[in-house]
């Protein structure tokens, strides 16, 4: 039973990670990161059920709050750079290199 949730969670995490690697739009990249966080949440809740304690569920709530804060900061940064460059592509920001 738990295994199914875990497999789903691992799939979500992988989709998120691969999304970060292959998508160019910063917003989408960021959403993929959120997907990874939610995959972790799913795993936490599944483990909480497996272990029979509440810790995992509580942690999931914390993670949601943190993710929300991250959204605020992330969107602020991405919007700023979009306004500057008229582009949200993460590949366009590569002045700093070598």
């Amino acid at each position: 039973m738990t295994t199914h949730y875990l497999v789903l969670s691992a799939l979500l995490f992988s989709i998120g990670a691969i999304g970060v690697l292959i998508r160019r739009n910063a917003i989408v990249v960021f959403m993929c990161v959120e997907l990874m966080l939610n995959a972790a949440n799913l795993a936490l809740v599944a483990f909480a059920r497996m272990h029979g304690n509440l810790d995992g569920q509580i942690i999931a709530f914390f993670v949601m709050v943190v993710a929300a804060a991250e959204v605020v900061v992330g969107l602020a940064i991405i919007v700023t750079i979009f306004r500057t460059r008229r582009s949200a592509s993460v590949d366009d920001v590569n002045l700093l290199k070598y």
Binding site: A17, L21, V90, N94, K97
Partner: peptide, 17 residues
């Protein structure tokens, strides 16, 4: 080696991955 530091955030993410 410094050519590996391409400036693309996605390649950094790839190396992390």
């Amino acid at each position: 080696l410094r050519r590996l530091q391409t400036g693309f955030a996605r390649s950094y993410a790839l190396s992390m991955f």
